[in-house]
């Protein structure tokens, strides 16, 4: 949509700017609070600024444990989602078969329905099947809703790898595996990387399903949730919150730059 004639109305500028400020100011506040000297309340403005909480947080084994568990879960879930999402995208975009719509729906359902439903469904299934909580029960849930992010990115890119590229490769003497290695993979690689980054961010941050599938284990979001409900160590929480913001921004930015020419990261992916 172009507008070459009229200049931007002032009221629209203000409304759009205010909207964006509304989205960003709270996140910026997190950065300020990480440095506050106040321990007992959320007092604003902070009475003083200090770096001491970074050191305190650094020496907290429970934070490290939660962080490591989160990274572990997100890595495994991302790996599974990458495999499943790519397979599914390849099937849907490279072959014609009956029921493709059903497959797309099946992939999207886990994020289309509220997370609490996925969570409670998995939990009751675990208890029915007598499966004890472990890293794997968390991974199972995370991988399920991460598939869609990889799938969305891969499908968009597969559409650009036209069928004739694959035929050209076979025509020149490459078998199925060689074609995959030399033509398909290089062309969908960045999309998969972007999808993987987003899946990692999604899993790293997930809390709703995890409360049902984690048992006594605590991932970083679960650790934060406990702090939110019963604040005990506000300064440490402030620092953790800031670190989480920084850690999730990186994959998002990376995914944006990886997919920027042509397709966009599916915002609906979360």
């Amino acid at each position: 949509m172009r507008s070459d004639r009229s200049s931007t109305p002032l009221s629209l500028k203000i409304a759009a700017g205010a909207g964006l400020l509304f989205l960003h100011v709270p996140i910026l506040l997190i950065f300020l609070y990480a440095f506050t000297t106040e321990e007992k309340s959320y007092q604003f403005p902070p009475p003083g600024l200090t770096l001491q909480w970074f050191a305190v947080t650094w020496n907290r084994p429970d934070v490290w444990e939660a962080l490591l568990l989160s990274i572990k879960v997100a890595s495994i879930a991302t790996a599974i989602a990458l495999v499943l999402g790519t397979l599914c995208a390849a099937a849907v975009s490279q072959t014609r078969f009956f029921g493709r719509e059903v497959i797309s729906l099946l992939v999207i359902l886990p994020i289309a329905l509220p997370g609490i439903i996925t969570g409670i469904a998995l939990r009751s299934a675990f208890s029915m099947a007598d499966i004890p909580f472990s890293v794997w029960t968390i991974v199972l849930g995370h991988a399920t809703f991460c598939v869609v992010v990889v799938y969305n990115n891969a499908v968009a890119r597969f559409r650009r790898v036209s069928g004739s590229l694959i035929e050209a490769s076979m025509d020149l003497g490459a078998d199925g595996f060689q074609t995959f290695r030399h033509v398909i993979l290089p062309n969908i690689g960045t999309a998969l990387l972007a999808g993987g980054m987003l899946a990692f961010a999604l899993s790293f941050d997930e809390v709703i399903v995890t409360t049902f599938t984690g048992g006594q284990q605590s991932t970083l979001p679960i650790w934060m949730l406990e702090e939110l409900i019963r604040p005990r160590q506000r300064p440490v929480t402030n620092v953790v919150a800031m670190v989480v913001v920084l850690v999730t921004f990186l994959p998002i930015l990376a995914a944006y730059y990886l997919t920027r020419e042509g397709d966009q990261i599916a915002g609906a992916g979360k």
Binding site: S162, S164, L165, M170, D171, D175, P186
Partner: peptide, 21 residues
């Protein structure tokens, strides 16, 4: 006989050059 075993080559209508190479 699959295409990759035929000593026959094709010039495609849309050329189908590999964009990444």
């Amino acid at each position: 006989v699959p295409p990759y075993r035929r000593n026959v080559n094709t010039v495609f209508q849309d050329y189908a050059l590999f964009p990444h190479l």
